[in-house]
Design a protein around this nucleic acid. Structure first.
Lengths: 112, 112
DNA sequence: TTATATACATAATTTTCTTATGTATATAAA
DNA sequence: TTTATATACATAAGAAAATTATGTATATAA
């Protein structure tokens, strides 16, 4: 439960980037990966994750296939070609945002 | 206009930080300052700004007073003591968020 | 048998924006 | 002179994107 209001807006970008690095992932795996990489600080809630995945699929950025493992269904997501382009675009946007925010908040790391 | 979905959640922090640096500011002045510092890339809309200011005041972080300049009313905002503490808290949170996001998106500047 | 982990999903609600609209004065341009 | 732009506030309608709460179902550890 990230309780961090600043997470708003960055979820799609995080999902797309993970799928660029990992080729194919299923929802639960994404939550665990984010938890792991963020040292437990960012916990994706299902109520945010699944609708976000569905929207990215509806927008044509992700495609899916299912697989049964241990009698449980996993729904895997993979980037489409359009999704691949979208990652680049979203990452550029994210970098610009971070730069602007750091400038506005005076959080720029000292230039060396 | 900023159209940047990543701005979501950072507006309050931006306002509080500006008021930490500038002692007292009025709404329109804040929009111009943000525009200036961000090289015109971030345009605060009134529909976002004024409700945010009102909420920060209702939460006890800001206090107000009005002044008439050239027959036009300006509503100035200033940090309360509680607001002063809130800035520190929000900035810490913002820094943590930026760090996590950069890690997740592999945007960390190379460590030297 | 009970709690926790794995795995999906949706509904109700809240927060926080965008867009549109409204009021009003000052000043520069046509 | 009247029209556009800038200054200055505000709110309402609607959309986007979360949180919180539920719900279903299986596997495994206590």
């Amino acid at each position: 439960m990230s309780t961090n209001p600043l997470l708003k807006g960055s979820l799609q970008t995080i999902i797309l980037k993970l799928l660029e690095d990992n080729d194919q992932m299923y929802g639960y795996e994404i939550t665990q990966k984010v938890k792991e990489v963020s040292d437990g600080e960012i916990m994706l809630t299902e109520g945010a994750l699944y609708p976000a995945l569905h929207k990215l699929e509806a927008d044509g950025f992700l495609e899916t296939f299912t697989q049964v493992v241990d009698n449980r269904v996993r729904k895997y997501y993979r980037l489409t070609e359009q999704g691949g382009k979208e990652v680049t675009s979203k990452l550029t946007e994210a970098q610009a945002f971070i730069d602007q925010l750091q400038t506005l908040l005076n959080l720029k790391p000292a230039t060396k």
